[in-house]
Amino acid sequence: MRAWLPTALRGLLLLALLAFLVSPESFEPLLKPLVQQDAPAIYNHGSLLSLTLQHLRTVFIATAAATIIAIGLAILVTRPIGAEFLPLSRSLVNIGQTFPPVAVLALAVPAVGFGEKPTLIALFLYGLLPIFENTLTALTNLPRSVMEAARGAGMTGFQRLFQVELPLSLPVIVAGIRLSVVINLSTATIGSTVAAKTLGEVIIAGLQSNNLAFILQGGLIVGALAILIYDSLSGVEKLLTRRVGRR
């Protein structure tokens, strides 16, 4: 996936996505050839706009929680007091990658019931690793001269962390968040198997009714969201990298 789309292409993709979500019936002539006779070409069991917003909400909540925990763990294990917890922390954040999201959903449903909660648990676990590893890499590879200058200036450990280490690490941390978001955007579709309101509902409806237009709608919306968000976060990462370079 290209990290930086041309402005015109990005704008066209965003406009096309918004137009489809607000007025999907306008695109019916394009999708009609993909369905059997008399079958609906546009998803008709709910609002595509509403499902998209709920999908993004689920991904945002899970990624925000994963970001807080992953960064917190990375900070802990890079301090002298928490260095011995590094192996344990790595084991914890690898849980989401060890167990498939479907297995996490199956284990979570008996504990928290159907709906959004098991999906949030699965996405949270799945999103931890890239953020944790990127933050850990950034914090352990800071320029030695900069750290020595900060100590020489009399900064406390707290001051060094928030005024030097985290600002310098931000571009790499954002890269981890970007990867986590894109992974969770696609993974969230399986949440519909446990009654979560996501775009997976559209894809599952298409599979059940052998409706290619439904499958295409769900897949294209998720794909467009992934490209736009990936590109936006790439822009943030570039901006932060320039600022760090100027510093």
Rank of each mutant, 00 (worst) to 15 (best):
G113W: 00
L48S: 04
P130H: 00
N44A: 14
E201D: 15
G176H: 02
A64K: 02
S50D: 10
T137W: 03
L88V: 15
S180I: 00
A213M: 05
Y126L: 14
S234Y: 10
A205C: 10
I95W: 06
V181S: 09
A153D: 08
L31P: 02
G157I: 07
R79E: 14
L179G: 08
P100Y: 05
R151D: 09
F20I: 00
A149V: 11
L136P: 05
A205W: 09
R243I: 15
R10P: 07
T67F: 08
R90H: 08
A224G: 11
A39S: 15
N134K: 01
N134V: 07
R151Q: 07
I95E: 08
V102I: 12
P87L: 11
F114V: 06
L225F: 05
T187V: 15
L128K: 02
L73V: 07
V164N: 01
R90C: 08
G115P: 04
F85W: 15
L9H: 12
I71A: 06
R57S: 09
I68C: 10
A226G: 13
P29F: 00
F114E: 02
A39Y: 13
G127T: 02
L207H: 12
E237V: 00
V194I: 10
A149H: 08
L12S: 09
V172E: 05
T193A: 15
I203T: 12
E84Q: 14
V244K: 09
K32A: 09
A188L: 08
S186L: 15
A65G: 01
R10I: 07
L14Y: 00
L228C: 00
P6S: 04
L30R: 06
M147I: 14
Q217K: 07
S89A: 15
L125M: 11
Q36W: 14
T58K: 09
I42A: 08
L233K: 00
N210L: 15
L107Y: 01
T58F: 06
P80E: 12
T78R: 03
N94T: 01
A66P: 03
I229K: 04
V112K: 00
